[in-house]
Each structure stands twice: as C-alpha cells, then as structure tokens.
Design a protein around this nucleic acid. Structure first.
Length: 270
DNA sequence: TCCTATGTTGTATG
DNA sequence: ACATACAACATAGG
C-alpha cells in the first residue's frame, strides 16, 4: 500500500505517542522484518525511553528516541502503523508493539517485506542519510533527473521512475500518475525522451508528490476523480481526460495503467 | 486452484 | 565496472 504520501500519513499516526515513556515492547523476534535489526538491543534501549520526533523521506521513516537512537520503519508492501488501546489483543502480523500506558504504537506487516532498523548514536545512520533529495525540495533538479535518465537510457521510463536512488517515494501508482499527467507512455525508453518531456516529467513528479502529501498524506482519502488514481484499478476504467479506455499491462515487472488517448509510444520496448 | 497485490534485493547476463 | 531484467521473499484475498 505505502508510497510517499501513505508513508507520511502512517508516520504521523505514531506522533500521538511522542514524549510518552515506553513501558514495554513486544517483538516477534523471528519475523523477517527484523532481518537487519538487533532485537535485543532494540528492546533494551526502548524500554524506559521515549520517541521524541518523527520524519519521513521517500518510503523510509525514522523516529528519534530520548536516548540518542534512531528507529527506522519501512512499510514494504503491506506494512502499516497504527495506535491502539492497550485493551486490544495483538494480531498475528503485529511484529512490533510499543506500550505507552493506555496506548500502544503498533507496526504490522502481514507479508513482511517491510523492515525495522535500529541505530544508536548522535549521527544519522547511513540508511537514513543516504536518501536522495525529496521530490518537493529544490535539490531535486531537472538536471539531476536528465542525467539519471541518460544513465538508464535503455530502460523503460516506468521502471526508472521506480528507482528510489533518484525518485524517493515514487511507487507503482505514483509513477503511473506522473506519466499520465506528463502524457508519456510508460514503455518509452528513458534515454529517448525529448528535453521538453524531461522538463514536464520533472514538473509532474513535484506536482504529484506535493498534492499527494497534502491530500493522502493528511487524511488518507483517495485523490479526486480528476486523477488517474481512482480509475486505474477499475475494470473498464476510463481516462478522465481523454475519455478513452485505460489499458493495463506489465511493464518493468509491475502492472502499469495508462491512457492510450494521451500517452503515445514513440519508441517501443519489447 | 490460480491469480493478483501501492516493494526491495540478490543474482545472472550482456 | 556498469547496466539491465527478473526471481525470490511471505501472505491474504478475489
């Protein structure tokens, strides 16, 4: 489920627990989500400390603790953060539960493609500091996008937009939304877009990121019918701009949705 | 039973 | 070394 805006929405859910003492921690030690995490150290550290701040960058989020540590959360495909009353019985997929008196902060992830990271120290860990500039920041430049597209010249633009080392937070639906707005066919080769298309793509990356953070990132409500989003999974879905039937096909290993009415293919990839 | 799923990574190949 | 493509990870739901 989670891309840029959904991640930020889930991050803020835990903010009600900031500055509350963590009284106990329940961990599914064997769960794959802890594959890069020392669960003993995590548990020992968290009990008796508190979460003091939260941030998200791309699909990664981090909570800083009162004792100089960094708790990283990646939601993978099916991860979610929620707050429950301590009366609630834990579910099978609740792999990390922080008990704060009457409240519990819960990380759940049935498929366990998500991940918990833990780092102690004043300096940010590498998994946090290496995340490239946010799509909505001024450091996300059209020049950087153009250079990246040239390095991935023989790949479809759809698969390139999914690469987190240049487009942090873009996932399957955002990539399709951006390409739809930019009127670029998802199967176009990254190296064969015109300069004007690259400028447009850069602009639409920023527009979709900003608007998604304002809407989904705040309320988790679906974007309006003027977006591709509410039409993309519907059988018989219709493009809200060109009124032509939407098409779904696997590109770069992911189901992609586009509008043949506005997204023309200039160079085919097969 | 078979197919799908808003993600990332390791590995094989060119 | 670099770029590219895809299987694998693990589970639930239609």
């Amino acid at each position: 489920m989670p891309e840029l805006a959904e991640v930020d929405y889930f991050r803020k859910r835990w903010d009600v627990g900031l500055n509350h003492d963590i009284q106990s921690v329940q961990i599914h030690e064997r769960a794959r989500v802890f594959r890069d995490c020392d669960t003993e150290a995590l548990k020992a550290h968290l009990i008796g400390s508190s979460l003091q701040s939260s941030m998200s960058a791309g699909k990664q989020m981090v909570f800083r603790t009162s004792k100089q540590a960094w708790l990283g959360v990646h939601l993978g495909m099916t991860g979610e953060l929620c707050v429950q009353s301590s009366e609630q019985a834990p579910r099978k997929s609740d792999h990390l539960v922080l008990s704060l008196g009457s409240l519990m902060l819960v990380f759940s992830d049935p498929r366990m493609f998500g991940k918990i990271d833990f780092h102690q120290g004043a300096q940010a860990p590498e998994w946090w500091s290496r995340i490239p500039p946010a799509l909505i920041s001024s450091a996300f430049t059209v020049e950087a996008v153009a250079a990246f597209l040239n390095r991935r010249a023989r790949s479809s633009i759809k698969s390139v937009l999914l690469m987190q080392d240049r487009f942090p937070g873009i996932g399957n639906w955002m990539a399709d939304e951006i390409l739809w707005r930019a009127a670029i066919h998802p199967r176009s080769l990254a190296g064969q877009l015109t300069a004007a298309q690259v400028r447009c793509l850069h602009r639409e990356c920023r527009w979709v990121a900003r608007r998604a953070l304002e809407t989904i990132g705040t309320t988790m409500e679906d974007p309006p019918a003027t977006w591709l989003f509410p039409h993309r999974w519907r059988e018989g879905g219709v493009c809200p701009r060109s009124r032509t039937a939407l098409v779904r096909e696997t590109i770069g290993g992911r189901t992609s949705c586009w509008s043949p009415g506005r997204q023309r293919l200039s160079v085919a990839l097969r």
